[in-house]
Design a protein around this nucleic acid. Structure first.
Length: 265
DNA sequence: AATTCCTCCTGATAGC
DNA sequence: TGCTATCAGGAGGAAT
């Protein structure tokens, strides 16, 4: 579920609740979500410390501690956060629990265990090592950055948009939204795209992220003309009422309107 | 180097 | 009701 806007909402949630209070201990309920660290190392890194800052790049969330390392979180397909009190029920699928001295708790939940939790001493080095592309919502990203990111790419547009090393943060749903808003077929070849096509794609991406953040990623509150409102098996194109078409795409599906998003070339 | 394919894991839902 | 098949908003590594 979580793409750039969803992870940004989680970042804000964590920042609003979990900063600047002493951590009593961390409990790892499923070590399967640990990435490059161990239960022991994670517990030791957090115990007695506080979270002091947050940062996000694409779908990755980083939480600075008052010691050396940052905690990093990736939510996979089903990851989420839940802040609650010790006398309340733990959420389902809790995989890592951070207990604060106050009695409050922060749960990292993830039914499917595709999420990741780990430690890094240097966020920039972490991002560079994994070769992530630029994040469209961070300072410095503009139309030219977008153009530059797509330059030299030869794959299919949908696949390129999903490639986090090209641009960080676009997932299956927002890629479909961008393509729908610009009338581009998912299998359009990137190599042939002109600036007059790429610019609207950039605008559609920024508009989709902004609109989603404005409604706290509650898609039911998005304007009617968003594909995200209709992206399901019975969904109809908000422009023409035609039933949405789908294409298998590397293990998942693209939803699009076969009338407005035609293959060109 | 870039792109495509496969796999990791488990819950919700549709269909019989 | 119960079982089975299918699908789900991701990333990393292998293969091409």
């Amino acid at each position: 579920m979580p793409e750039l806007p969803e992870v940004e909402i989680r970042r804000r949630y964590l920042a609003a609740h979990a900063l600047n209070q002493p951590i009593q201990r961390a409990v790892i309920l499923s070590s399967a979500v640990l990435d490059g660290t161990t239960s022991t190392a994670l517990r030791r890194a957090l115990k007695g410390h506080r979270f002091v800052d947050t940062r996000r790049h694409g779908k990755w969330l980083f939480v600075k501690t008052d010691a050396q390392p940052w905690l990093f979180l990736h939510f996979g397909m089903t990851g989420n956060l839940h802040y609650y009190q010790a006398d309340e029920d733990a959420p389902r699928f809790e995989r890592v629990r951070i207990e604060f001295a106050s009695g409050a708790r922060l749960a990292f939940m993830d039914s499917r265990k595709f999420g990741r939790v780990g430690l890094t001493d240097d966020v920039d080095a972490f991002l560079a090592r994994r070769k992530w592309g630029p994040d469209p919502t961070l300072p410095g990203f503009d139309r030219e950055t977008f153009h530059e990111a797509l330059r030299g790419r030869s794959g299919l547009l949908k696949a390129v948009l999903l490639n986090q090393r090209v641009i960080a943060g676009i997932g299956n749903l927002y890629a479909d939204e961008m393509l729908f808003q610009t009338g581009l077929h998912p299998e359009t070849r990137v190599s042939g795209l002109k600036r007059k096509t790429i610019d609207p794609l950039y605008e559609a991406m920024m508009a989709a992220f902004a609109a989603s953040l404005a409604v706290n990623t509650d898609y039911s509150k998005l304007p009617e003309n968003f594909l995200l409102r209709h992206r399901n098996d019975t969904g109809l194109c908000p422009k023409c009422g035609k039933k949405l078409a789908t294409l298998p795409f590397g293990g998942r599906r693209s939803y699009y309107c076969a009338r407005h998003q035609r293959r060109r070339s």
